[in-house]
Design a protein around this nucleic acid. Structure first.
Lengths: 181, 181
DNA sequence: CATATAAGTCAACATGGCTGACATAAAATC
DNA sequence: GATTTTATGTCAGCCATGTTGACTTATATG
């Protein structure tokens, strides 16, 4: 049989390239999450708590259903962790003004603190990777990951503002964005 | 107070940039795995089965302990899914020749088939993202993800061979690599 | 021969998904 | 104003997949 893997077979390269990408995603995610997990045990919280905490911190005033849409879990699953976090004073719920059925979630100062602590190592891991890879690589990293995300959410994740080419400003669409740094 | 977020505060940009990276990783991984999960239910298998199947397919002849090192789970957890896969004829175990304590795992043709089916949509999702982003972005994607992976595994994940600058060849270090495509 | 290593197994437990069935309050609609 | 829809919460139970701890068996190695 012909040496099918000797350099120039585009099908093999393609397959290999794609598999490498898939694996890289697995390994990176594995190491990225391990980071926070270690911190979480100290607080007797799980990964699910962290995710809720993170996204509430990221989108102050987010509603329960919006949070559900991000996490893609059931109401019941979320309730479990959310109740923990509210009971322990990390998150507050306040009824909406225009629509009083809605519960707007926010981190308390204590919650903000906790979130920072847990995310800390993850942040610096990403920072290190960014630094080592360089700005251009970071751009590519974003571009590809964004392409992996489903189209709906991809749009919400604000296409990295190039030179302005429409009328209005660009930014996180439906979700409330952080008020101030 | 001064407009701390108006464009030029490097600290704010940095924080925002890092958070975007973290989220992108979350969203991409979420959508990437959903893809396979849907397929798995048809076969009454779980994500854990897929991971084992994938890495055995990727490293034919891999030993149990090597697989454990990749997945970072306990022997007992792996045993559960591995036994399922062996019983159902997707994976074979054969004792090593030099060291007969070792079990070398391989996919059966049936297992290979299954793996392909399950990974199919993931592969095409990555392919699409690669295509849209372009070769340069893909390079950056790899670079950054590799930087996120812990140093040990990073080395094994063969730094994308640049122009030769040492003596010997470069390649997957400890793990057995696919025999042929 | 003694010890270390690779693998397998049993048992029990925790986390975090899931479904189904309902309850309540408020908004939206007829 | 009555009815329906929506947003949220809750109870109960199930399943997949991770964990620890204890112990066995076979084989390699000192």
């Amino acid at each position: 049989m012909a040496d099918i893997k000797s350099g120039v077979n585009p099908l093999f390269l393609r397959e290999e390239e794609l598999r490498q990408g898939m694996e890289l995603l697995f390994y990176a995610y594995r190491d990225f999450t391990d980071e926070a997990d270690a911190m979480l045990v100290r607080y007797k919280l799980g990964r699910a708590h962290h995710r809720a905490l993170y996204f509430v911190g990221r989108h102050p005033g987010i509603s329960v259903s919006e949070l559900l849409a991000i996490l893609r879990i059931t109401k019941q699953s979320l309730a479990r962790v959310l109740n923990d976090l509210v009971r322990q004073g990390f998150i507050t719920q306040t009824a909406g003004m225009s629509d009083r059925r809605r519960r707007h979630l926010e981190l308390t100062p204590k919650g903000l603190d906790l979130e920072r602590q847990i995310t800390e190592k993850q942040r610096s891991r990403i920072a290190r990777a960014y630094r080592q890879a360089g700005a251009e690589a970071v751009e590519g990293f974003r571009k590809v990951l964004l392409g992996i995300v489903n189209e709906h959410d991809r749009r919400l994740l604000q296409p990295p503002a190039g030179p302005e080419r429409g009328a209005g400003e660009r930014g996180g669409a439906t979700l409330p964005t952080p008020k101030r740094p």
